[in-house]
Simulated scan of single mutants.
Amino acid sequence: MRVGLIARDPGHPVLAAAAGALARRGCRVEHVGPDGGVGAGALADVYLLKARTPQALALARELERRGAVVVNSAAATGRCQDRVRMAELARGAGLPFAPTLAAGVLARLACPAHPFVVKSRHSRRHDLVALVDGPDRLRELVGRWPAEEVVTQPYVRGNGWDQKLWVVDGQLFAARRRSELAPEGEELVASEEWEPSAGQAALALRVGEVFGLQVYGVDLLDGAAEPVIVDVNAFPGIRGRPGAPEAVAGLALRVAGERAAGSR
């Protein structure tokens, strides 16, 4: 069995560990650079789409056109890249997603009442996620990100922690991590163990159904009446979660096996 990893860094801890687990099962694992292409030879049995750049999505779509199975699919991955469309899809399905408004270019932002959260409209590595608590903070961000296309969300006051849930083929992993919006200088460890409630777990699984995702992350905050989803990420890092690499490997084996059975 051949498994292709569409990733910028095949040495990412979760990918490397998943590749090791697959190799121990006799699989051949191949790195596929997201900026390149795949030759005219035989396709892999399944491709894992870790990269989310426009080039990676274009490559995934081409592979799918040629009959390959890609996890997550190009379409499902694309649903998580535009935060406005992400929020529209989630709220349209009845999910408690934070109201997310397109705000244009940051330098021309019509400033809502403080405090509020500003994020890059298009999700990517090292994008903009910041709390704006006054005009000085907004001016600082404009100086660094003047041409960034952004969205705004209401600020949900928390306790300095983000609730992170990751799902791999229906298997749930969770942790609390220091919020990007926590006041600077707070003495908090980077992450801590956290057990989601049954309702939070069910909500995370519902996200996968709505977005068509098999490997994904959900960021939750505690709202006044119910948990609030503030972001969904296709194929996140899932660092430090025991069992996650094995779950990724198991997903690849299951999908490839189903494809092989269907072609007989």
Rank of each mutant, 00 (worst) to 15 (best):
V189S: 11
V29K: 07
N233D: 08
V118N: 03
A68S: 14
L22K: 03
S179P: 06
Q171N: 11
L48M: 00
P135D: 05
L253W: 01
L95I: 06
A19N: 01
C80G: 08
S263V: 12
G4E: 11
R241C: 12
A58H: 08
E192W: 08
S123D: 15
E192L: 15
L220H: 00
V218Q: 05
L5E: 08
G36H: 13
P115M: 04
N72D: 13
V255P: 06
G4R: 08
P115F: 00
V32F: 13
R176T: 05
G134V: 04
R239D: 13
A252I: 06
A21V: 01
V207Y: 02
A93N: 12
A102C: 00
V168L: 01
A103P: 02
H114D: 14
E184D: 10
A93V: 08
A256I: 11
T152Y: 04
G217E: 04
L49G: 04
R25D: 12
G158E: 09
A90Y: 00
H31L: 08
A68H: 09
L43F: 11
P112V: 10
S73G: 12
V71P: 01
V232Q: 07
V69T: 13
V248C: 04
V132A: 06
A147H: 11
L172I: 02
R108D: 11
R139L: 11
L165Y: 02
A107F: 02
F97V: 05
A174E: 02
N159P: 09
L5I: 08
A42D: 14
V38K: 06
R61E: 13
H114P: 10
G212V: 14
V228I: 11
P13Q: 12
A76I: 07
M1S: 14
V207Q: 03
R176G: 09
V118P: 02
G33M: 10
M86A: 11
A21L: 13
V117E: 08
R121D: 04
A68E: 09
C80V: 00
L95K: 07
V189G: 15
K50R: 14
P96V: 08
L172E: 04
V84F: 03
V207C: 13
G134T: 02
V230T: 11
A90E: 03
R2P: 12
P236V: 02
P227K: 07
A44D: 15
P227T: 09
A201E: 12
V142R: 09
A202D: 11
L220R: 05
